[in-house]
Amino acid sequence: MRLIKKKVTRVRTRNNIKHFVSCKRSAIGEGIINIYRILLISIIALIILGSSAVIFDYYINVRSLEAQVLVNQLVRCLAPDGIVDISQIEKQADARKIDLKYNLLDYCNIQNKKRFYVNAYVKWVIPQGADIEFDKHMEDVRKKLGIRIVNGEIYYPTDEQLKALRAEENLLTSRTWQEGDYGIGWIKDIKNVMWLVDEVNDGREITIADVALFKERWGKYFPGVRNPSSLNYPSVYAVSVLDKGKIFRGQIYAEVIVDHEF
């Protein structure tokens, strides 16, 4: 009887050990499978979250309004009371060591200017016979009035010839001041983007409907633009220009491109 009992005990102990080992293995296996299950559930949740983020996302584009405001600020900076004092502006720019041809926004103390391209073309007409002294800008005028002769050489008019010419004609004078990269507005020139033709309509001519479709899809990246040829509110301003103590009638043609902020 004792012998039988001992045998049963030994067999039970062996079975218990085997059972314990197999339970431990299956627990580890379950744990590994659970990791995959949790990963799968997380991926599904992320997919649903991502699609809800895309569906409910809405971007409000105010770049056109920003462009209009910037044009107004620019003109207010250059012509505070409707008068563009050319000498004063150039004197202040020299004193602050600002090159107006490339750093117009610095002159106007506009901050956060990475997104902007601005161009201000100020023109005025010096009427015929007006007595005005020569300066460095007259050199540009002299070059523009250069006369090509038969053997290919270019002769420029002398001061006397220029004065005589001005006595007979009105003289158009201008300044162009700008800052920024004109290329930031590339997306607005979509007619020139050849790949759009392939993507949208297999080679046929781009229509207004294609433009509208493109704007709907990529509108988030469209720049805000104001220029003299804008249909609504063209940015052309009539001003008076004070040049060397004399006032002339002139205009400011302003162009502004506001890029996206992403």
């Binding site: 809800s52 409910f56 996302d57 971007y59 409000i60 105010v62």
Partner: peptide, 24 residues
């Protein structure tokens, strides 16, 4: 997802952009 469904982000955008334009 709750913040998106309640349009809080859109309201935030509206106020920020309106105020920025007013400041400008």
């Amino acid at each position: 997802a709750e913040s998106r469904v309640n349009s809080r982000a859109i309201k935030q955008q509206i106020i920020e952009k309106q105020t920025a334009l007013l400041i400008d």
